[in-house]
Structure formats: structure tokens, C-alpha cells
Amino acid sequence: MLSHDRSIATFRPSNIVIWMTMAFQGGYLNMVALMSCGKFVSHLTRYATLLPKFVVSENTVEFSLCLFIPAAFVTGAIFSAFLVDSRLIRERSPKYWVAFGSMSLCLAGLLGLGLRGAFGTFGEGLIEAHDFLFLSALAFICGLQNASITSISGSIIRTTHLSGIATDLGIGIVRLWTLKISRPDSVPSFIQI
């Protein structure tokens, strides 16, 4: 299912280029959101942590953001699941290109609308409803991207946030060291860590 030639889940140079490009894009989009509205779009832990604070302080703008951003991210993940994960379960070829095409369309739309002034001045912060739309669209793209890469890699690779990767890196370093001592014949290559 995942091992045929068209899969982007295997450790091949062309696939590694795709994963690295997506990681690059994850960092890039998060910074765009931060620079334009002063908010993150893929750091959902932040919103989950701050939600109670905004409920107590009755800050409706920030409270709405704590709901909008995660909702948009999850919607992107759901959309991706229909195109990739659901098809993998039914043993059909996943539509990676539709997922990536949708991301391109969203980015083109944001770029076009941004240049026409639909989102106000870049860097003005979170002021109006159109800023919510801009951030939600970026969160949707991040969710779509992250879910696509997560599905095809068997939850090994995440490209929009680093907590999971950093955890896996720590475990991988110790695993590599342990295998080198106890079972030198079965040590994985460093590229897999």
C-alpha cells in the first residue's frame, strides 16, 4: 500500500526533499502569521493554554481567536484525511496532488487578496475581522499540510510544529546509542533518526 513507486512515505531522496520543503513552509507560514497579526497559526498548545485566561478576563477577541485558529487547523486536517488517510485505509492511491494543489490555491488566494488590500496593511496586528480570516486560512493550510505528511509517514513526521520531532529526536539518539552497544548489527542509519 505504501511501498509502491508513487508513495511519498519512503526514505528516498526525492521524498526527503518534499518533507524538508514542508518543514520549511511550516516555519515560513508561522512567521508570516506572526509578522502580519502577531499570532501563531500552528502552535495550538498556546491557544489551549490561554483559553481559560481569556474566558476569565472576558477578552472576546482573543477568546474567539482561541476557537477560530484550532478549528481552522482541524478543518484542514479533516480535508487532508479525505484525500490521503481515508484513501490509504481503502487501499486506494492517495491524492497527494489534490492536497498540494489546494494549498497552492489557498496561498494564491491569500496573496492576491493581500495585495489588493483585503486584509489591511501588513503588520498592523489583529484589528479587524479580515485578520481572523487571514489567520484562519493560514491555519487551514498548516492543518492540511501537517495531516497529509503525518498520514503518509505513519505519524513519524510532523512539519508545522517541533515538539513531537524534538521528542522523537531525543528518543532516537538514545536508541541509536543503545543499539550500537547491545546490537551493533541492527543499528539504523543516522538519516532515519
Binding site: W19, M20, A23, T159, L162, I193
Partner: peptide, 9 residues
């Protein structure tokens, strides 16, 4: 690979 992902991010 994970070092690469973090670096590219």
C-alpha cells in the same frame, strides 16, 4: 532526518 526537519523549519 529530524535534525534536518528542525533546521529547515
Amino acid at each position: 532526518m529530524r535534525v534536518g526537519l528542525i533546521t529547515f523549519f
